[in-house]
Simulated assay, not measured.
Amino acid sequence: MSDIWTVRPGAGEHAPYFGRYIDLVPDGDLLERLRGQVVSTVQLLAPLREEQANYRYAEGKWSVKEVLGHMIDTERIFSYRVLRIARNDATPLPGFEQDDYVKYGPHARQPWPELVEEFQVVRSATLCLLRGLDGEALSRTGTASDHPASARALAWMTAGHELAHMAVFHERYSAVLV
């Protein structure tokens, strides 16, 4: 385990809102956490049938497919931000409207097995990116969504974002989980 992956981001490395995601991540090696998450998430979601993946717990709420699609899109955006900041690109990075990404994204129409595979591939790409970073790159700070953000904080936010949505799956979508 490399010590750089156990250093939790400080409050000045991210917008206060994102502290809620970082706080969900247990102490330990972040890369190991991210590798383990993809396994547990796929074990939970892959067995769902298409009709289960289309389940919404209430009118107007995202389907299981849309939640997973949101997780995929968000991880891609966080990873892109990690890349830009780690490479010392000082260009401010804009925010994104998650509801528009779900509304205009293809996830609700995609076959469920393909969406699960996409999640795995995106996580694999995230891990490849992160493995190549050293402590200096992780400590670099840029601007994302009008707030300071370090590459390290974005990596931890990736893990915490997944944990937050896994809790939602267990709380709100338990009727269809196998």
Results as ranks from 00 to 15, higher is better:
A15N: 01
H161R: 06
Q43K: 12
E13A: 08
P94A: 12
I22C: 02
E51L: 05
L129Y: 08
P106Q: 04
P9L: 01
V176R: 05
R56L: 10
H14S: 10
H70F: 00
G28D: 12
E75N: 13
M1P: 02
D27V: 10
P111I: 10
M166F: 10
L68W: 08
L68I: 14
G28E: 05
R87M: 09
I77Y: 05
Y80M: 11
T91K: 14
H147W: 14
V82L: 07
S124C: 13
T91G: 10
V64D: 09
L44R: 09
L24E: 01
E118P: 08
P106C: 03
R76Q: 01
S150H: 09
Q98A: 04
P106F: 03
D29H: 07
G69D: 00
L30G: 00
R35S: 11
Q43W: 07
L177C: 01
V121T: 14
R20E: 11
R140D: 13
C128K: 13
Q120I: 14
P92E: 04
I77S: 02
A137W: 06
E118V: 06
V121M: 15
H107F: 03
R172G: 02
K65E: 04
I4R: 03
K61S: 03
L83Q: 15
K65W: 05
Q120S: 12
L93N: 05
L68M: 12
